[in-house]
Design a protein around this nucleic acid. Structure first.
Lengths: 149, 149
DNA sequence: CATAAATGATACCTTTGGGTATTATTTAGA
DNA sequence: TCTAAATAATACCCAAAGGTATCATTTATG
């Protein structure tokens, strides 16, 4: 009952980059701030670029930049790009046809919970995240990972 | 952003058994109704027994029975026995010390969401699940698994 | 135009969750 | 007291997620 690690990483990255939305960030710079395992970070950044949330610039002095206006990127938009969006309409007990055949015992109660979650995730945009600061996006769990690149 | 498959299984099992709370169910009978992969089901049932949610009776004509009054078993109680309880106090971005060092941008909003979830999971007991019926706990995804025992 | 510094692609390794197989133990009842 | 039918324990297997390594490509700049 969490987001996957990968989704958390994506949320951190996008939120961090939102602090300076025009800026072109290199993977190195993001790594320096967020301490996400470097090679995995690189992979994730290309994923986010392919998904359209980021624009990548190749070559020396290249990097990544947020592609749209901050107000147009909701947390759900980010979450959905990392495959962690299953919860959207899912039955509490994990039955695939819950809504269609018979309601399960938790159907209505859980629908309300999901609605609450969805409401927060769709209405909270990076713009709001930016404005909510100052705050720490810095992972200070002394990373066991090395950069190695 | 779901419960794990194992947690879903546990929720199905306990909810199913709550339909007849005094009854001693054999693994076979539960399998016949829920179609959870048989050997995994067996394993899970011993886990639930060790956790105290179920009482197991060994030997021929043995089986499992819910150990307490239905009103004393909340959904959270079940969820916590399958290791899926991380969400309880967890930061939106997955930072371990979010609450202690600096609040993250989502801290308050997400705390409210978690509170909502916790409220539902702690106040909904198996008694309520039982009363909410009739409903289907029957997995009709034509199982690809065989029983094999 | 060579080099350095960046991203892209791809293949591989590791850990964990889900699932299986085998053997041991318990106990009701013929 | 033997057998059948149940649970207990344990070890193993497989797939997916997380993470690493290597090489290729792009491009600013000396």
């Amino acid at each position: 009952m969490n987001f996957s690690r990968t989704t958390e990483y994506a949320l951190r990255i996008m939120s961090f980059m939102a602090m300076n939305e025009q800026k072109l960030y290199s993977a190195n710079e993001i790594y320096a701030n967020l301490k996400i395992p470097f090679r995995y970070l690189r992979k994730l950044l290309t994923t986010l670029s392919k998904s359209g949330l980021l624009i990548s610039v190749q070559g020396k002095s290249g990097g990544y930049r947020i592609s749209k206006d901050l107000s147009e990127i909701s947390l759900l938009d980010i979450i959905q790009q990392t495959g962690d969006n299953k919860f959207k309409n899912e039955c509490f007990f994990g039955f695939h046809d819950c809504a269609f055949v018979k309601k399960c015992a938790m159907h209505d109660k859980w629908a309300a919970v999901r609605e609450n979650i969805n409401q927060v995730l769709t209405t909270t945009t990076l713009e709001e995240i930016k404005e909510t600061g100052p705050h720490s996006f810095i992972s200070n769990n002394n990373s066991v990972f090395t950069k190695n690149d």
